[in-house]
Amino acid sequence: MSVILEVSHLTKEYKTVKAVDDLSFTLNEHEILGLLGPNGSGKSTTMNCILSLLRYSSGSIRIHGKEMSPSAYDLKQEIGVIFQDVAVFEELTVYDNIRYFCGLYIRDRKTAEAYIEDAIHLTGLEDYRKFYPKQLSGGLLRRLNIACGIAHKPKLLFFDEPTVAVDPQSRNNILEGIEKLREQGASVIYTTHYMEEAEQLCDRIIIMDKGKILASGTPDSLKSITSVTEKVMAEVPRLSEEKLHKLEGEVTNGSIRYENGRLVVSFHDGKDHITHLIDILRRMQISYLRIYSERPTLNDVFLELTGKELRD
């Protein structure tokens, strides 16, 4: 697979604060690369630097081996961007918005019209061509935002947290749409702070915090960083200190956390510990409402790397 985007030692400083600190990564063809991190970790800043919207302090950014700059129009031709904020004209209809932004990339009218139809079809906006943005729901507005960014069939796509404040159904539609785009030959950089999205969608994930890369790799390889092999959660309304202490003695191959009526046991070896834990709870006469187990998540990875939750 060839490298489509190469970021080398990118640094962006605001006075004394480094928003992006010596960042280096690549994006391969037909790959979906996730930038995962909490708010303020430097994801959007990184993206804006790559798009030459922000001036950066040092480093280099190359697309198809060529240096990216504000006047690199040939490179810009290949790029599509879906911003976190909806970027459409209030005064234009759905169709006119897509037509306008597509027209900035595609000069031939017939080609542009064909592309616009494809974009409308892909985002499910057939029934809303003549609607104005004010008349659309939040989900539809997001779809319009996407349609404006992909209409010209770019090969390199940037999605900046496109599912913020979107209902679950629309979110699924968006993620499915991105998959389709990859199938059609696009390469995608996807920034988010939702680990589930990153796990579901991305081939590779870069975990960022405070402008630095903490870890990168496939979801499975990232999860292997953490020492936790399985987590068993139980809803325990009442648990005394004494019983908790006793329980800690019983579980030798894991760590226990109890807060707000929730007991979390993180095992550091093997799996399928749920049956064993149920036995222990029964024996100790600890009543619980619900018990389930899950594999470690990226949140656990982040917690291990930084000492805080991804959602903090």
């Binding site: 030459s52 919207l53 129009y73 810009k76 911003f83 909806v86 970027a87 459409v88 900035l104 990339y105």
Partner: peptide
């Protein structure tokens, strides 16, 4: 204002497009 990236999302979209600023 509509074509300045620091003022609106539409400005960002316009700036990253390959259209010559002069013509736009």
């Amino acid at each position: 204002n509509m074509h300045q990236a620091n003022l609106s999302a539409v400005g960002k979209r316009s700036t990253v497009a390959p259209a010559r600023r002069g013509a736009v």
